[in-house]
Design a protein around this nucleic acid. Structure first.
Length: 877
RNA sequence: GGGGGCAUAGCUCAGUUGGUUAGAGCGCACGCUUCACAUGCGUGAGGUCACAGGUUCAAGUCCUGUUGUCCCCACCA
C-alpha cells in the first residue's frame, strides 16, 4: 500500500474512481424483490446544453439523496436522460444553416431532420460527460432521450388518449408568435420585460359627422386590423357614441363603437381600438360582439395583403409610416412616452406578436383538478411546503395549453387529415393510410411538432416503458422524489403531475424537493449577456468535484437562492484537505490496524467514549436531516463533527497514547481512530464521493468500495451520554488554561504548572497526558486551595475544577485583578438572569420540570463560581 | 391588481416541532515553523435577530400590522 500524498489533489484520482464505479456497475439499478425500490428521475438537460452551475446544484442534490439511499440498502434507480429541446435545438441548427447560407425551407423537412440528428449525435451528449465529472451515480445503461423510440411511443399514446377523451382540440386562438423563430409559444415560454415605448393618440372620425373619437395605442400598426372601438358602458362621455359607426383612417373600413366592461374609463382616453386578431383581450371582446377577425401580419412579422398600402412592410416600418400618415391627416393628437410590459421570445428574445392562429390545445381545467387534489391530500409533498402554494396558484388559474409548435425538430403531431373529406385521424400506434370516414387514401399529416414539455411531462413513466406494463414500470414507479428548481414548477412539475395522474392513476412522485437559483457573488442571476456565469467544469478542474458539490449545498436552506464565489469553493476545498490529512494521519499511524468489529467491548478511555458519543449524535442528526432533505444542515453537522470534534480534539487527544510506550493504549486509540474515521468517511460519502472512496481504498482490509458500504447507523449502546458530558469538563478545562495563558501573554511554548482544586481527580488523572499536551502544561498538581500554587497566581473557575497557575513575574496583579472582576461581573449577569427566571412563578409552575431544575442547578453553579472567584480576588488585594 | 420570498456579526448565510449563554464560513485583532494539515493551530473582538404591537411561563422562531428589498403571476389598449 502506497502512502497518501501530503495534500489533497482531486485531479489525481477523481476520473480514475469514476471509471472504477462504472466498470463495477455500481450505479446499475436492479429489480430486486427483496429490496425496497427508490427511484429518482433526473430532470433531462437539453441535449445540446452545457452543464451550468444550476444543473450542478440540482444533480448534486439528487446524487446525495441517491447515494444515501443506496447505502441504506434501497434498490436505487436514478434514471438519467436528455431532452430534445425542440425550439432551442432547432434554433441552433437554423443558425448553423444560416452560416452555411441555406435555410431549413430550402433543405426540406426530411433533409433538415437528417442534419438535426447528425448534429445531435455529434454535439449532443457532451453534457453526459460533464455529469459524470460531477460524480453523478445514475444508471447510464438506461440513458434515455425524449425522442427515442420508448418516449415517442408514450407521446403518441398520450396524445391519442387525450384526443380520444376530447381534451385535445384544434382551434383559432390568440397565441404568442415569434416572428423570428416563426412558431407559436406557450404562455409560460414568454419572457416579459419592461420596455420603453410610446402611447400614440389617434382620432377616428365618426361617420356622418364632424366628430372624432380619440383612442390611444402602443402598437399603431395593428390599427390596420381594427374592427371596432370599445368604451365602457358606464362611461357617460361616450354613451351617445355607442352604436355609431367610425371610419377607420388609412383603411376606410366602417367599424362600430361597442360598449364593453373590459374597458377601463380611467386609462388612456377610455376608448380602446379593438384588434381581435392581434390582442388577446380584443379577441375576447370580438367574440362577445361578434366582430370580424382580420389578421394583418404574416408569420415573419411583415404586413400582409390586408394592410393595403402597407403590405410587405416590416412591423416597425409599418408603424413609422402609419404614424407619419396619421399625422399628415391631422389625426395624430399626441405622443407620450410609455413604458409597458412586452413579451419576448425566451429563445431569441425577439418581441412577440399576439396573433390569431389555428393551433392545438390541451384543455387543462378538468386535468388540473386531480393534480390539485393530490397535493392537497398529501399524496405528493413539496419540500419546502411553501411551494405547494405556488403550484396551487398555477393550477387554479390554469389556461389551455398551446401544444403545437411550427417546428420540425420534435414529436410530429400524430394527426392526419383526409384530403377529400377533411376528417381528422388520430391513432395510438400505426400511421393511418385510409380515411375511416370516406375511404380516401390521400392523407396529410399535420406539419407541426409538439411542445417539448409534452414529452417531458411523461418522463417519470415513459422512461420506464409506459404504456407497456414493463417490470421496470411495475417495480420503480411511482418515483420517490423529484428534485428541481422553483422556476420550472409551471413548466414541468405541474405537467408531470397532471399527466402522471391522468395516465397512470398514480402521482408520479411522492416528494418534490425544490431548490433555488445559483446566483453570482453580487446576487445577480447568471446570464450569458452579463458573462457572470461560473463554469462548473472549471471549478472541478481547479478545486475538485467534491469541493464544488459541498460548496453548492453548504449553508443553503431548502428552496432559497444562493450566491457562489471562489471563496466558497476554497472553503470546501480546505475542509476536504482537512479530511485528507486527518485520514493520512490516522492511516500513517495505523499501519494495518483494522477497524475494530466490537467497539463496545473494548476498554474505552473517557476521550474515546466522548468521540464515539459525538459520532453517534452526528449519525443521528445527519440521517434525520438527510431524510428531511435538509442537505445544508446535514453537511454542517458533518463538518462540525469532522473538523472540530474529530480533528481538533480527538486526534490531538489520542496523540499521547499513540506516541506513548503503552502498546495496549496505543492499540486502543488506533482502534477508535479507525472506527471513527471509517464511519466519518461513510457519512461523508454522499456529499463527497470521490475523496471518501479514494481514502477508503487506503483502509486496511476495507471490503470493496465505500459506495457499497452501509451507511452508519445510530447505536444506543455507543451513545455514552453521561460519560461524554463528563468529558466535556476536560475540554472546558483545557480551553480555560489556554485562554488564561493568552490573557497574561504567556508564550504558548512556555509550559505552565497547573494546580487544580477539584472533585474530579480521577477524570483528570486518566486524561493527564492529553491535558498537559493540549493545554501546554508541564505538570498537574491537585490542591486543597489556591494558596498551594504560591502567592502570585492566575486563576479560573470551570465546571470541573478551579485552576491556579503560578506565573511568577509574568503576572501583573492589576491586570489579573481586573480580569477577575470582569469574570465576576459576567457570572453575576448569569445569576441575575437565572434568578429572574426563577422568580417568575408562572415559569416555575408551567415550564417543564427539567427546564426549571436546570435553571436552579445553573444558578447554584454560578453562585458557587462567584464565591470562588471572589475568594481568589481577595488574595490579590 | 394577485401571490410568494427575504430582512440575524463588517460580508455571505445557517438557525431542524417556541426552551441553556443566537452559530458557521470569510474578514478583522493578537499569538503560534506543536513531528496530519499554514488549504493549518490557539485565543479573541464583533449581534437591541428590520420596526411596532400581540399570543405564551418562555419568541430570532407563532400571529397582526408597518417599512425596505427581491421574485413569480396577471398584462391598462
Amino acid at each position: 500500500m502506497k502512502d497518501m500524498q501530503t495534500t489533497y489533489s482531486p485531479r489525481e484520482f477523481e476520473d480514475k474512481i469514476y471509471a472504477e464505479w462504472m466498470k463495477k456497475g455500481c450505479f446499475e439499478a436492479k429489480i430486486d424483490p427483496a429490496k425496497v425500490p427508490f427511484t429518482v428521475m433526473m430532470p433531462p438537460p437539453n441535449v445540446t446544453g452545457q452543464l451550468h452551475i444550476g444543473h450542478a446544484m440540482d444533480e448534486t442534490m439528487q446524487d446525495i439523496v441517491v447515494r444515501f439511499k443506496r447505502m441504506q440498502g434501497y434498490s436505487v434507480l436514478w434514471q438519467p436522460g436528455v431532452d430534445h429541446a425542440s425550439l432551442a435545438t432547432e434554433h441552433k441548427i437554423v443558425e448553423k444553416l444560416r452560416e452555411e447560407g441555406t435555410t431549413k425551407e430550402e433543405l426540406g423537412r426530411e433533409e433538415f431532420l437528417r442534419r438535426a440528428w447528425a448534429w445531435k449525435e455529434q454535439y449532443g451528449g457532451k453534457i453526459v460527460e460533464q455529469l459524470k465529472k460531477l460524480g453523478c451515480s445514475c444508471d447510464w445503461s438506461r440513458l434515455a432521450f425524449t425522442m427515442d423510440e420508448k418516449c415517442s411511443r408514450a407521446v403518441r399514446e398520450a396524445f391519442f388518449r387525450l384526443y380520444d377523451a376530447g381534451l385535445i382540440y384544434r382551434g383559432s386562438r390568440i397565441i404568442n408568435w415569434c416572428p423570428d423563430c416563426k412558431t407559436a409559444l406557450s404562455d409560460e415560454e414568454v419572457a416579459w420585460s419592461e420596455d420603453a415605448g410610446h402611447f400614440w393618440y389617434f382620432k377616428y372620425p365618426v361617420e356622418g359627422s364632424d366628430e372624432f373619437l380619440t383612442i390611444a395605442t402602443t402598437r399603431p400598426e395593428t390599427m390596420l386590423g381594427d374592427t371596432a372601438v370599445a368604451v365602457n358602458p358606464a362611461d357617460g362621455r361616450y354613451s351617445a357614441l355607442v352604436g355609431k359607426t367610425l371610419i377607420l383612417p388609412l383603411v376606410g373600413r366602417r367599424i362600430p363603437v361597442v360598449a364593453d366592461d373590459y374597458v377601463d374609463p380611467a386609462f388612456g382616453t377610455g376608448a380602446v381600438k379593438i384588434t381581435p386578431a392581434h390582442d388577446p383581450n380584443d379577441f375576447e371582446v370580438g367574440l362577445r360582439h361578434d366582430l370580424p377577425v382580420i389578421r394583418i401580419l404574416n408569420d415573419d412579422g411583415t404586413v400582409n395583403e390586408q394592410g393595403g398600402a402597407y403590405a410587405g412592410l416590416g412591423r416597425y416600418e409599418a408603424r413609422k409610416r402609419i404614424v407619419k400618415d396619421m399625422q399628415a391627416l391631422g389625426l395624430l393628437v399626441k405622443v407620450e412616452n410609455h413604458t409597458h410590459n412586452v413579451g419576448h421570445c425566451h429563445r431569441c428574445n425577439a418581441t412577440l406578436e399576439p396573433i390569431v392562429s389555428k393551433q392545438w390545445f390541451v384543455s387543462m381545467q378538468t386535468l388540473a383538478k386531480p393534480a390539485i387534489d393530490a397535493v392537497a391530500k398529501n399524496k405528493t409533498k413539496f419540500t419546502p411546503d411553501r411551494f405547494a402554494k405556488i403550484y396551487y396558484n398555477w393550477l387554479e388559474n390554469i389556461r389551455d395549453w398551446c401544444i403545437s409548435r411550427q417546428l420540425w425538430w420534435g414529436h410530429r403531431i400524430p394527426v392526419w387529415y383526409c384530403a377529400k373529406c377533411g376528417a381528422e385521424i388520430v391513432t395510438p400506434k400505426d400511421d393511418p393510410t385510409v380515411c375511416p370516414r370516406c375511404g380516401c387514401t390521400e392523407l396529410h399529416r399535420d406539419e407541426d411538432c409538439l411542445d417539448t414539455w409534452f414529452s417531458s411531462a411523461l418522463w417519470p413513466f415513459s422512461t420506464l416503458g409506459w404504456p407497456e406494463e414493463t417490470p421496470e414500470y411495475k417495480y420503480f414507479y411511482p418515483t420517490d422524489v423529484l428534485v428541481t428548481g422553483y422556476d420550472i414548477i409551471p413548466f414541468w412539475v405541474m405537467r408531470m403531475m397532471v399527466s402522471g395522474i391522468r395516465y397512470t392513476k398514480k402521482v408520479p412522485f411522492r416528494d418534490v424537493l425544490i431548490h433555488g437559483l445559483v446566483r453570482d457573488e453580487q446576487g445577480r442571476k447568471m446570464s450569458k449577456s452579463l458573462g457572470n456565469g461560473i463554469d462548473p467544469i472549471e471549478v472541478i478542474e481547479k478545486y475538485g468535484a467534491d469541493s464544488l458539490r459541498l460548496a453548492l449545498i453548504s449553508g443553503v436552506a431548502p428552496g432559497n437562492d444562493t450566491r457562489m464565489s471562489a471563496a466558497k469553493f476554497e472553503a470546501s476545498r480546505n475542509f476536504l484537505n482537512k479530511i485528507w490529512n486527518a485520514s493520512r494521519f490516522v492511516l500513517m499511524n495505523a499501519k494495518g490496524t483494522d477497524v475494530p468489529k466490537d467497539i463496545a467491548g473494548m476498554k474505552l478511555a473517557p476521550a474515546d467514549r466522548w468521540i464515539i458519543s459525538r459520532l453517534m449524535a452526528t449519525i443521528r442528526e445527519v440521517t434525520v436531516a438527510l431524510e428531511k432533505y435538509d442537505l445544508g444542515i446535514a453537511a454542517d453537522k458533518l463538518t462540525r463533527f469532522a473538523w472540530d470534534d474529530f480533528c481538533d480534539w480527538y486526534i490531538e487527544l489520542s496523540k499521547p497514547a499513540l506516541y506513548g510506550d503503552d502498546p495496549e493504549k496505543k492499540r486502543l486509540a488506533l482502534g477508535v481512530l479507525m472506527f471513527v474515521l471509517s464511519s466519518l468517511l461513510k457519512l461523508l460519502h454522499p456529499f463527497a464521493p470521490y475523496i471518501t472512496e479514494e481514502i477508503y481504498g487506503y483502509l486496511p482490509n476495507a471490503e470493496g468500495m465505500i459506495i457499497s458500504a452501509d451507511y452508519p447507523r445510530y447505536n444506543s449502546k455507543l451513545a455514552y451520554k453521561s460519560e461524554a458530558k463528563a468529558f466535556e469538563g476536560v475540554i472546558e478545562l483545557i480551553k480555560a488554561v489556554r485562554a488564561m495563558k493568552v490573557a497574561v501573554n504567556c508564550p504558548p511554548s512556555k509550559k505552565v504548572h497547573l494546580f487544580l482544586v477539584t472533585d474530579a481527580r480521577r477524570l483528570i488523572t486518566v486524561n493527564k497526558g492529553a491535558i498537559l499536551r493540549l493545554a501546554g502544561a508541564a505538570e498537574i498538581d491537585f490542591a486543597e486551595s489556591g494558596s498551594e500554587a504560591g502567592e502570585k497566581t492566575v486563576s479560573q473557575v470551570t465546571g470541573v475544577a478551579q485552576i491556579f497557575v503560578p506565573l511568577g513575574d509574568l503576572v501583573n496583579i492589576e491586570e489579573e485583578r481586573a480580569r477577575l472582576e470582569k469574570e465576576i461581573a459576567r457570572i453575576e449577569g448569569e445569576i441575575a438572569r437565572a434568578e429572574g427566571k426563577l422568580a417568575n412563578r408562572n415559569f416555575v409552575a408551567k415550564a417543564p420540570k427539567k427546564l426549571v431544575d436546570d435553571e436552579y442547578a445553573k444558578r447554584d453553579k454560578y453562585l458557587e463560581m462567584k464565591k470562588m472567584v471572589e475568594e481568589q480576588l481577595k488574595t490579590l488585594l
